[in-house]
Design a binder for these strands. Structure first.
Lengths: 228, 228
DNA sequence: CGGTTTCTTGAGCGCCGTCAAGTAAGGTGG
DNA sequence: CCACCTTACTTGACGGCGCTCAAGAAACCG
């Protein structure tokens, strides 16, 4: 089936996803079990005991927090190669759910902790990953706090295209609801922003989950807030 | 002078700020030089070569990113004991400025890197700090993306009081502009939110930079989005 | 005490959220 | 392959929260 391949976001060029800098790989290979999570299925919930870490093999995962009245914020999306659920405390402080049908390696936390205690290089890699994510989180804060709806959507597409294998043709695995909850908007506003970008000739939308970037420069300028 | 003591935010109860879990201390003591930064003075700029790390001795520091047209987002505030400027890449990806006159320990990055390579415990501590900050960043994303102006200000005061030595009387070292840029609001909206909390009897504002929390439960409920 | 900066308050507007309807896409069974 | 149903996305009208512009009040400092 070609569908599975198309539903994947390409891995980010982060340290952990490259074979040559993947000291966690051997640990996970030995101690981990293979699990699957179907579309919209939870991998773990915020507040659960953080007993396991997960490495995404195929698919895509969203991590989110929800307010008592249901308002949701998706902090980030992850793809093949990424590690999730390695927590500072005893319990997960966000919920992780599969965006599309996904396969993961499930590794006991104690096992990973023990491995890290003996392998300084692996620990250093994990520190780099954490710092990289912190950097991404800060960019997302600028987006959420200071960008307009159009700029938010342009930024999102910009990041997605950078992660994508094909730069101009980008497949969007997540729903408009997920995009809205990631950008601090409503689905209607996201949809209107897409339409606006299409009318400006910056993107084409052959199908809702399939965009083509027609003017990359304009998209990036808009994303970086360098437009009037 | 009592003023200096009053202008400090109390240190967070993070791992790195406690003496017993401070393996970085000895490294910094040996290799670091003492520097001062006056109110609103930059410690380093986004894009500069990240050659040094800093540990705050006294005072308070804000880290921020600015869009081309001047829109600013303050990602976080730091206080005595906190380490800033330890970057994943070759250059700083945010600007650090003193909120009040501050004293810092300036340590060459190479020195710290070398120290970390030999001390696994210190590295583990740094990983914990990074993960803790990532967790805080995710909470801030919920705030920026999904909370109302009143909820944002209530959350801010809630965090500030948790970090403060005295729980009910809280000193606010930063300006309304800083608060606004941290919460994704304007100074006018921040001011109006303060007034609203005062009229609701949740806080008192004897002076602009000095608040008293009269109803902690109501403040926390509002901060957590558990109100109508 | 005067000057400067910071904070507060007010009036009006605009972006985005809400509510509602319409349209397209996808999946299922005949 | 197509009718049917369900779900997801798009578009429109309207209102409200928060931004903009402007003035006034308070705090801070020499």
């Amino acid at each position: 089936m070609l569908t599975l391949a198309r539903t994947e976001i390409a891995s980010r060029p982060s340290a952990a996803s490259r074979k040559s800098e993947d000291p966690l790989g051997q640990c996970l290979q030995r101690a981990a079990t293979r699990v699957t999570a179907h579309r919209d299925e939870a991998i773990f919930w915020e507040g659960d005991a953080a007993d396991h870490c997960y490495r995404i093999v195929t698919g895509a995962v969203r991590i989110s927090k929800v307010l008592p009245d249901g308002r949701r914020q998706i902090a980030d999306f992850f793809a093949a190669g990424d590690l999730i659920g390695f927590e500072p405390g005893a319990s997960y402080d966000f919920t992780a759910e599969a965006v599309v049908d996904s396969v993961l390696l499930k590794c006991p936390r104690r096992q990973l902790e023990a491995f890290l205690a003996e392998d300084a290089a692996a620990q250093r890699t994990l520190l780099s990953v954490a710092l990289e994510r912190l950097s991404a989180a800060q960019r997302q804060m600028v987006l959420l706090g200071r960008k307009s709806a159009s700029e938010k959507v342009a930024s999102f597409l910009s990041v997605l295209s950078a992660r994508s294998r094909t730069v101009t043709e980008v497949y969007i695995p997540m729903s408009r609801t997920d995009i809205a909850d990631h950008l601090g908007l409503t689905i209607e506003t996201v949809s209107r922003a897409f339409t606006k970008l299409r009318r400006q000739g910056i993107i084409a939308l052959p199908r809702p989950q399939h965009i083509e970037i027609l003017d990359a420069d304009a998209l990036h300028d808009l994303a970086d807030g360098a437009c009037s």
